[in-house]
Design a protein around this nucleic acid. Structure first.
Lengths: 351, 351
DNA sequence: ATTTTTATTGGCAACGTTACCAATATTATA
DNA sequence: TATAATATTGGTAACGTTGCCAATAAAAAT
């Protein structure tokens, strides 16, 4: 059978190595070698096989290969809230790096829900990913035990548990809250509302610590009513402020002069509520965000926030993961990146 | 061997059906039946097996299952620019719907690049996804031929080719540009700069058509210099405007009074440039966006734009795809959703 | 008690790939 | 020319799963 007029009429026969072997009159082994560029293959034969493979539009079955090699060139990414723009810069670099080296990524969202997170981890395990990057719901959950027990290559981002041989790349939320609060106090704010995340989230605990630390630093009293736990979304930030000020009249603002938000999305919610209520930012209310998602500089007024190096987190995280997967590095990496204040126009200087 | 003290000390033996079979003293077939809840299995045996499986933290190998069934419960998503917030909402709903029914998604970015897109399609094929949702780089590329030839279940979003049995869900970019331009003209603008995408992109062609149609409608002259092709990013929008007005002095604005952007990201770039140059929006320059990404309402001034139903696109797209994958529906679906003007404050009424 | 029916089980093959080994073909050496 | 060395090839098994069929066990009918 010539390689020219290949018989494609046979119905529902997959174009696989065996098929190519039959067409080119060699064995599957030879085809496999040709396809993989194995030097043990005869150059002339290999070229002929390759040509036929191309004519037939052959593409490998990576399920079969994965099953055999226990390696899928697939990475799992498990995040807490896909809707948050915070993650997209990270996802984008990761995707770029992976695409370059012919890996792909399975992306999923655990929505701050331990049950969902567990399900996602098991899916990753079942689909045989070579490793995962995860922003965990909580750093003490049994989901993390599961990951460890199964020996799944993992890099934690956002926040991370501590044990022998962990890998993580994140920033210190405590420090972020601390420098944010310090800045607010330095600007003369003494009564600062903390819009924090749900209390069962590790990130909320850390953030609260930094806030309290700073207050303590300046011997400011902690006011319980000034610490609010809420979901980490724009809507929640909006609702929290609307709830505090149901009336459209300004005036009862004297209770606090600034809001520190765990995440820029909350801050944007505060902007939205303020606009509706009629508060001018920063004159009536100062707002401090966290993350520095790209759009915050285009808000009006531009949001003062704490910058988190999202791209760097993605780059480092995936590098560490790949080094481990490909056996280049077995060391544990614990990386805590710096955070920095981005001073814009949403905080009023009272002094 | 009792099911209680199971021997886990054997090194590097995978916990698979065969292993469970050995531990529970039955055959692989029986274990497989128990696991799948096959009624042909004896209830008592099945329960015992299930218990053992749980104790052993068994999880299925979906590569093996996929190889056998030619079904992976995995969907591919191929987008043109992961960094564009335009896609976030779509990705989020798709993820939610998939997660609910134990599917997962492989996400990748083709960056408006046909070569990358092709690579991504082949990866999807190789990894055995059950179908893809794709925002194609171009609607006449051979990549689309590839998809068709391979019989890959596909739903096109953003824009789509036309052939027998296609599935797509998108909006009419032509119509969007048309109503945007109509609005600008109605507001008294006669010289409108079009910040369009790269000319080889289908979306740019369509958008341009709508713009031209509207000008023609009002017998306005088409000015070549007023049609600019650029990348669809914030940076590009910024650069385009900066290039037009290299000096920081206002004054040579009389050339046009409004900018229509293919995408809100471009519009934000225009905002940025305007701010630097010293143009007041909308007094010195009116800006019209397209997409209505969530942040545009928080810009200053809030951006007047054309709303595209991103969530609906995701919902419908994935529904159509799943119906097709699971054999519930073999019909072709061609859905063009409505677009609507969102009037905010970035366009000045000249009349 | 024997036969027939039904319930439950185990064995086998296949999905597509490749590592390993043995078999053969080719080339180099004596 | 015969032999050794090397290059190239083909066959087989395995990765983990499940559908199919045959084999066995249990239950029902005679």
């Amino acid at each position: 059978m010539s390689s020219k007029n290949v018989d494609k009429t046979q119905k529902s026969e997959n174009i696989d190595i065996k098929y190519i072997a039959r067409v080119s009159g060699v064995s599957s082994s030879t085809v496999s070698r040709a396809l993989r560029g194995d030097p043990a293959a005869n150059k002339k034969t290999a070229d002929r096989v390759l040509k036929i493979a191309k004519e037939l539009n052959y593409y490998p079955n990576l399920l079969a290969k994965g099953l055999r090699d226990k390696k899928t060139k697939t990475i799992g990414i498990i995040l807490n809230d896909l809707k948050n723009p915070l993650y997209y810069e990270t996802i984008k670099v990761i995707e770029e790096i992976l695409n370059d080296i012919d890996y792909s990524m399975i992306l999923c969202d655990s929505n701050f829900d331990l049950r969902l997170e567990r399900k996602n981890i098991i899916t990753m395990l079942s689909k045989g990913v070579d490793g995962i990057i995860i922003s965990p719901v909580n750093i003490e959950s049994e989901n993390i035990d599961l990951i460890r027990k199964q020996g799944l290559n993992t890099v934690y981002i956002d926040f991370a548990p501590e044990f022998e041989n962990v890998n993580y790349v994140h920033v210190s939320h405590e420090h972020a809250a601390f420098i944010a609060t310090e800045y607010l106090i330095r600007c003369g704010h003494k009564k600062i509302l903390l819009l924090n995340g749900p209390s069962q989230l590790s990130v909320s605990e850390d953030f609260l610590k930094g806030y309290l630390q700073s207050l303590k630093n300046h011997k400011l009293k902690v006011i319980k009513q000034h610490i609010i736990s809420t979901e980490l979304s724009l809507e929640s930030g909006y609702k929290a402020i609307k709830k505090l000020f149901p009336s459209k009249e300004p005036g009862n603002l004297n209770d606090f002069t600034a809001v520190l938000c765990l995440g820029d999305m909350l801050a944007i919610g505060v902007y939205k509520a303020s606009k509706e209520i009629g508060f001018k930012i920063p004159d009536d209310l100062s707002v401090m965000g966290y993350d520095n998602i790209f759009m915050t500089s285009y808000l009006s007024p531009p949001l003062t926030t704490i910058h988190a190096p999202k791209i760097r987190i993605g780059e480092l995280g995936i590098k560490i993961l790949l080094d481990r997967i490909e056996g280049r590095d077995k060391e544990s990496h614990r990386i805590i990146l710096d955070v920095r204040l981005v001073e814009r126009e949403s905080v009023k200087k009272l002094t």
